[in-house]
Amino acid sequence: MIHGQIIFYGASVALFVIGLYAVLIKRNLIKIMLGLSLIEGAVNLFLINIGYIWGKTAPILSNKELLAHPSAKAVDPVPQALVLTAIVIGVAVLALALSVIMRIYETHGTLNVDKIKELRW
């Protein structure tokens, strides 16, 4: 099924590339963090796509038919559990990074990476 690869994997590649472009090109620290969270979203989307199986439904066995034949009717639950962890860690990292950015703005008075001497490359 090649169109699944093109659509779903292609979406995660596109998200990753957009995020990477934002990280490399933008000079504003908050925009760089937005790019990083886009990359994180791309990775999460890719993990979820790996677990998908054609024609099957979510691994919540809420009716009799699903309870009788779980592995024939439901998708792979392992990547979903991984992504559940990854999303929470991503939120924690984002909050901490934004607080550090607030501190940087306080000490340097700017958010431009080029103007901050310690971060110049």
Binding site: Y9, S12, G51, I53, D76
Partner: peptide, 11 residues
């Protein structure tokens, strides 16, 4: 990603 099959059981 083109080498990874989509929509088949893996694990």
């Amino acid at each position: 990603f083109a080498k990874i099959p989509f929509g088949v059981p893996k694990t």
